[in-house]
Design a protein around this nucleic acid. Structure first.
Length: 585
RNA sequence: GGGGUGGUAGUUAAGUUGGUUAUAACGCCGGCCUGUCACGCCGGAGGCCGAGGGUUCAAGUCCCUUCCACCCCGCCA
């Protein structure tokens, strides 16, 4: 029996309900209380003619008091039903009331449409979590976890827990460190992912492993990034990309059908990394709308416009974004877009409005008729368009126009809010040049298998080597990524070498993996999903904080517990640790 | 490390060019009310305007410093 279970057929039953006082409406002679529990709301009437004691006590009720009510279910009087409530046709006429606990006046009301600021919501998270929206988000998360376990259990996967106290590995994100008391001066690291352990489990012959697991990365936070987050992590032996894709698609179908009643139809579209970067300016393309990027470097190379020419001479490129109907963008709006691309390193942005009576643009006079015709042919320009250009190094052009594309998609209302567009992104490069560290680093991670056909390039043109890595992208957000791994020690050795990781360092940091690869490691691969992000998208939220029970603030603190806190002197002594200096001072 | 938005009553917000006693809504407290469901009506309390410093006859408002929340860049294999 809960506050959402009584219906007309229950009329006449004597029942007991317990819950929280959502609202009290005191009419003097008659008191109404909306009684709330996690399931819903039932109206309770305290009528002195029915329960004198209950009516007297009900006068003391306040918001969020916890009560138990005994009473009889009855129809509401003619015309007094409340169609907004599933229980709106009935009410409970209270005969007895027990106040199980009182409550201070809550800092904000327990309603979905209260817009309390996030800091107060986080401080009083237990009140925030009473709101149906947030509660239901966590229920959805629970269901996803349960459906996930059921799905992979049925496919023969074994859930294995891997250590939370493990060792720091180079590459990747900053580690959270945990000092070891027993081993003075040594530290555990919290795992950024169970990557190495799941590969070792494949060597151990588990064949199919999965885990719903916390991962930790000590990096700056975003709306979709928390220092501790949850992955669905899985790995399989004797597996191909195709098998992984279809298995994951089946999982997505199960979750979407189970939670939303509808599901995208597999197989999901695929796109190479190269195509995604070329046309979407990002490795996580949002395919819910058009506005694709087009490279026009060759078309404008001979133009008189110095900005284009210089960018190209310096090895850069020029890309254009054709915005149909964009001529209505005001000068102010275009200036805002220019400011926007500067965030991503662009020096500026050129624009052309295609008016019926000609091209209106600060740069039109630099574009010869030949160049203009070239642009018309390349971009399929039509009257009413606005064309936006960025010329710079390839990365800056893609970053700025890719993000500009997203902004315009939202601003111009091109995005169907109900759409769930999945796309597999494949054929990532294995390595990328890190100009800070002056060496190649892994695009995915150092254990990702290169394309066998590209292996010869590993020592000669490392940036040309493609990897057997793949991401699953939903609505422009990366929700999962994985790869077929290296299972042969010799290839692993060559990849480490390409990464500039010395043999000694590899032995010291990953020796156990290298050794394991020598003991009959099967070919294997897997994938990991950001469960928080997936649930966030399923719940229509814009931050993973809304699907995490107790999230951290952007400064990586918990406003409810005030973690992190200073350590007790004795704790530090035991650990032989001393805090020196303050980076913030 | 950097850019941006915000911080005024318990909550959410308004506050003009620096000028009398800092507003409103919701919430809260008291009273009245037997059919409300965002109940209604009457009355009331509630403020170190994030904190610190400065300019000024005068600061919520201008300047500087700083703290907090959020969005973003860098960072996040």
């Amino acid at each position: 029996m809960n506050c959402n279970s009584l219906r007309p057929e229950d009329v006449g039953r004597e029942i007991v309900l317990m819950g929280w006082v959502q609202r009290r409406r005191d009419h003097g002679g008659l008191i109404f209380v909306d009684l709330r529990d996690r399931e819903g709301i039932t109206q309770v009437v305290f009528d002195p003619r029915i329960g004198r004691q209950g009516h007297e006590r009900a006068g003391a009720l306040r918001s969020e008091y916890v009560i138990a009510v005994k009473g009889n279910t009855r129809f509401r009087p003619e015309g007094m039903t409340n169609p907004k409530l599933p229980t709106g046709e009935i009410e409970v006429a209270a005969t007895e009331l027990r106040i199980l606990n009182s409550s201070k006046t809550p800092p904000f009301q327990v309603e979905d449409d209260v817009d309390a600021s996030e800091n107060i919501r986080l401080k009083y998270r237990y009140i925030d979590l009473r709101r149906p929206k947030l509660f239901n988000n966590l229920v959805a998360r629970h269901k996803v976890a349960q459906m996930t376990r059921a799905y992979f259990n049925d496919l023969g996967f074994i859930e294995v827990e891997t250590p939370v106290l493990t060792r720091s590995t180079p590459e990747g994100a900053r580690d959270y460190l945990v000092p070891s008391r027993v081993n003075t001066g040594k530290f555990f690291a919290l795992p950024q992912s169970p990557q190495l352990f799941k590969q070792i489990l494949m060597v151990a012959g588990f064949e199919r492993y999965y885990q719903i697991v916390k991962c930790f990365r000590d990096e700056d936070l975003r709306a979709d990034r928390q220092p501790e987050f949850t992955q669905l992590d899985l790995e399989m032996s004797f597996i191909s990309e195709e098998e992984i894709f279809s298995m994951i698609e089946g999982w997505i179908v199960k979750i979407f059908s189970g939670l939303k009643g509808v599901s995208p139809r597999p197989p999901f579209p695929r796109m190479t990394y190269g195509e995604a970067m070329d046309r979407y300016g990002a490795d996580r393309p949002d395919t819910r709308f058009g506005l694709l990027l087009t490279e026009v470097t060759d078309v404008v190379a001979q133009s008189e416009f110095r900005v284009f020419r210089q960018a190209i001479e310096r090895g850069g490129i020029v890309k254009a974004l054709r915005v149909p109907g964009g001529k209505d963008l005001s000068r102010k709006e275009l200036d805002d877009l220019i400011e926007f691309v500067k965030i991503f390193g662009a020096q500026g942005m050129a624009w052309i409005k295609i008016q019926a009576d000609g091209w209106q643009s600060p740069i039109a006079k630099f574009l010869s008729p030949d160049v203009q015709q070239g642009l018309i042919d390349r971009l399929g320009i039509e009257t009413g368009d606005v064309i936006l250009f960025v010329a710079d190094q390839r990365k800056i052009v893609n970053d700025s126009l890719g993000n500009l594309r997203g902004r315009l998609g939202r601003q111009l209302g091109l995005i169907d809010p109900d759409a769930f567009n999945f796309v597999w992104v494949t054929d990532f490069p294995l390595l990328e040049w890190d100009s800070n560290e002056k060496r190649y680093t892994s695009v995915h991670h150092p254990f990702t298998s290169p394309f066998e056909s590209d292996m010869d390039l590993l020592e000669t043109q490392p940036e040309k080597v493609r990897s057997r890595a793949y991401d699953l992208v939903l609505n422009g957000i990366e929700i999962g990524g994985g790869s077929i791994r290296i299972h042969q020690q010799e290839i692993q050795r060559r990849v480490f070498q390409a990464l500039g990781i010395s043999a000694e360092e590899a032995r010291e940091k990953f020796g156990f993996l290298l050794e394991a690869l020598q003991f009959g490691a099967p070919p294997h691969g897997g994938i990991a999903f950001g469960l928080d992000r997936l649930v966030m998208l399923l719940c229509g939220c814009s931050s993973i904080r809304d699907v995490i029970a107790f999230p951290k603030t952007q400064k990586a603190t918990c406003l409810m517990t005030n973690a992190p806190s200073e350590a007790d002197v004795n704790q530090l002594l035991e650990l032989c640790l001393k805090v020196e200096g303050d980076r913030n001072k």
